[in-house]
Amino acid sequence: MKPPRGTDIALDAPHGSFGCYLSRPEGEASAGIVLLQEIFGTNLHIRELADQWADAGFVVIVPDLFWRSAPGLQLGYDGADLDRARTMLAAFDLEAAIDDTLACADYLRAHGTRRVFTVGYCLGGKLSVAAATRPGLDGAVGYYGVGIEKLGIAGNVKCPMMLHFGADDPATPAEALAALGRQLPAGAALFRYQGAGHGFNNWRRPSHDAPTAQLAFARSLAFLGGIG
């Protein structure tokens, strides 16, 4: 993989100033993406993901969702880092993170981006759904967000949505996805991939499933490209 090529910026929002990673395409951007992190902070993989979406023609901004308590946090996936990530998740303020997400969407629009989407992974997958219940987004994609069905808000989504889950992910069993599917508004797409587990899109982890990741990315790309 290439080293991350984006830049770190400070975004001044009404509720505070926080760090973001910004990645731009080589040519003109077709649209903007607010990319939402896993529980491990804005680490190397999240930055690589931002660059992947930028290579597909989007201007991508990644908010540091842990800035209120641990700004700039970047964690690995094992040992003490995993314990720290779980601690951060337990204290996570979803409503505050929605404010951060929409502030990033406002930033992209203020800098000339007409269409703005969210794409989130793990924690960010849940946040992608939560943010889409408020006005201000043109579309939303979520990967393996855990516990979305327990929020009771999925039916309030205000934009087109696509969700991806691994069928072998114990954190999102079939009954949870069935409950989520019943909540989602008509037209929302939910895919469940046989043989894939949690984190199937993360090529920095053993859970990576390349064929599933490629299929989900292609579907997401086509989905966002079809939103006028």
Results as ranks from 00 to 15, higher is better:
G139K: 11
F18Y: 10
D169A: 01
F18P: 01
P211H: 13
G120C: 03
H208P: 11
G79C: 01
L11W: 02
L22S: 02
Q74G: 08
P185T: 00
A188D: 02
E175Y: 03
Y107V: 04
P25I: 10
K158A: 02
P63H: 10
G139T: 02
P135E: 10
T133G: 02
F66H: 09
Y193N: 04
L73C: 06
V59K: 14
A105V: 07
G136V: 10
W53P: 12
L127S: 07
E28I: 07
K2L: 13
G181I: 08
R134G: 03
A179M: 03
L221C: 00
Y21G: 03
G226H: 07
A110Y: 03
E175P: 00
I33Y: 08
V157E: 01
G41Y: 10
A178G: 00
A176I: 04
T101M: 08
G155H: 08
L73R: 11
Y144G: 03
S220K: 01
I98K: 12
Q74H: 03
H45A: 06
L36Y: 10
K150C: 00
A90S: 14
F200I: 05
A31M: 11
L102P: 11
A105N: 06
F217Q: 05
A54D: 06
G16F: 08
Y144H: 12
R68E: 09
G112Q: 13
M1F: 11
F217I: 00
L82R: 15
C159L: 07
D12E: 15
G225D: 02
F191T: 02
G139H: 04
A103L: 06
A218E: 14
R182H: 09
Y77I: 08
L102N: 05
T113E: 13
P14C: 04
H45Y: 14
L102T: 05
T113C: 04
V34I: 03
V129W: 07
T172Y: 00
I9D: 05
C122G: 14
S220W: 07
L102H: 14
F58S: 06
T212D: 11
G145I: 03
P160H: 02
H111W: 09
S23P: 14
D106E: 14
L94T: 08
L224D: 00
A171Y: 07
L82P: 00
R115F: 10
K158N: 05
D12T: 13
Y77H: 04
A154R: 04
Q52T: 15
G225K: 09
H164G: 01
A29K: 11
K126L: 10
G76E: 04
R114L: 13
A29W: 14
G125L: 03
L49I: 12
R134I: 05
Q214S: 05
H208R: 12
A31S: 10
M161F: 10
A80Q: 10
T118P: 04
A56Y: 14
A171L: 10
S23H: 09
F200M: 01
L108M: 13
R205K: 14
